[in-house]
């Protein structure tokens, strides 16, 4: 059970003088239950790629398989794909439109043609998953804080009961606490519901803290793809393509250069703290 991209390319304005190749022969598999970070600078093809995963864009070349079945086959139901692969766009709070939080979250399941009872149940569950209890149900989405609005928007996608959740820069513009609230909720969904998550992010610190695997996009290619520690080990290559490793990685490398005994694949503060204390402990 997985999403498999087989040699997909996408060209904007295909055939016109301004054509731009946004994806260039990308092959990758997103297996069930992984938490994946998708990174790359603006224009690297990240957003184009994720819009292929739920069929919003159709590859110019190549094929995409969902659970072994080509999503471009005539018999394949795009509608069911879109409910299984939930996509949360950038600034999703701009898409809130109902008069209260609960009705807004009901919109998706209602469109699936469900009965009233299951719609209400799903909306309630989805709001619980993002940590908004019943006291928010009747509040206008526009009276909420930025982080809360965004959680309502994510609940709207969760109410579709997706198997895969894709979030395009879900923390852009949020303050540090708002960022932690969203990412902690997403990590919990991954942990407790076994949901597959693809997180598009500019923040290497966030990616290092949460994901199992990182895919780095550059010029429409998957330039690096591997476990987070592996990918951040290539921090010089990341810099060449306009990215960076988390600050803590640079701290570790600077210490190591001075002769401090420490492993060079550390990417989080927690690991750094433990490794430094251990090394200091040996001294005394």
């Amino acid at each position: 059970m997985a999403i498999e991209c087989k040699n997909i390319s996408y060209i904007y304005g295909n055939g016109s003088p301004q054509e731009i190749r946004a994806l260039n022969h990308v092959t990758l598999t997103i297996p069930d239950g992984q938490f994946i970070g998708l990174i790359g600078h603006t224009g690297s093809g990240k957003s184009t790629l994720i819009q292929h995963l739920n069929g919003l864009l159709k590859a110019t070349e190549g094929d995409i398989l969902y659970n072994g079945e080509s999503i471009y086959a005539e018999t394949f139901s795009m509608k069911s794909l879109r409910s299984k692969v939930g996509l949360v766009f950038q600034y999703p709070e701009h898409q809130l439109f109902e008069t209260d939080v609960f009705t807004d979250v009901c919109f998706g399941p209602k469109n699936l043609g469900l009965d009233d009872e299951p719609i209400r149940r799903r909306a309630r569950e989805a709001l619980d998953l993002v940590g908004l209890d019943a006291s928010y149900d009747d509040v206008s989405p526009f009276e909420l804080s930025g982080g809360q609005k965004r959680r309502v928007a994510i609940a709207g996608v969760l109410a579709m009961k997706p198997e895969v959740l894709i979030l395009d820069e879900p923390t852009a513009g949020l303050d540090p606490r708002g960022r932690d609230e969203i990412l902690d909720q997403v990590a919990k969904l991954h942990r407790e519901q076994g949901m597959t998550v693809v997180l598009v992010s500019h923040s290497m610190e966030d990616v290092a803290r949460y994901v199992d695997r990182i895919i780095v996009m550059n010029h429409g290619n998957a330039a690096l793809d591997g476990a987070s520690k592996e990918v951040f080990r290539h921090y010089r290559e990341l810099e060449e393509i306009g990215l960076a490793a988390p600050q803590v990685t640079y701290i570790i490398h600077a210490l190591k250069e001075q002769g401090f005994p420490i492993a060079d694949d550390i990417t989080t503060i927690k690991e750094a703290r433990e490794a430094i204390l251990r090394a200091m402990g040996d001294k005394t």
Binding site: D175, P176, R177, G178, Q247, V248, I269, A272, R273, L277
Partner: peptide, 20 residues
Amino acid sequence: YRLDVPQVTELSWQLKKAGL
């Protein structure tokens, strides 16, 4: 106040709390 410090400041602070 719902704010953060840079990772290097955070790490120093945590190490200090641990006794360094």
